[in-house]
Amino acid sequence: MTEQKTLATLTLILRDLLGDNNIDLTMQTTRDDVPGWDSFTYVNFIVAVEAEFRVKFRIADVESFSDAGAIVAAIAAGRPR
């Protein structure tokens, strides 16, 4: 799966969570950039992503993902080839 595809899936998950179809994630998007993406929704999002991609992030990583790109990278690293 390419980075762009992963990113598109993340966007769909977040749109679904926040009920806002105007969201478009880029590799540089941070939580501050998306209105309503608070810590509750963020954890919700992470668990949804884990289920979607069948990965499990480390807690320390969840806490420190700096932007959407970091999540994409972690998915790529954590997915069984």
């Binding site: 668990v47 807690i59 969840v62």
Partner: peptide, 8 residues
């Protein structure tokens, strides 16, 4: 986060 993550 750890708490919420665990519960979710």
């Amino acid at each position: 986060m750890p708490m919420t993550l665990y519960l979710m």
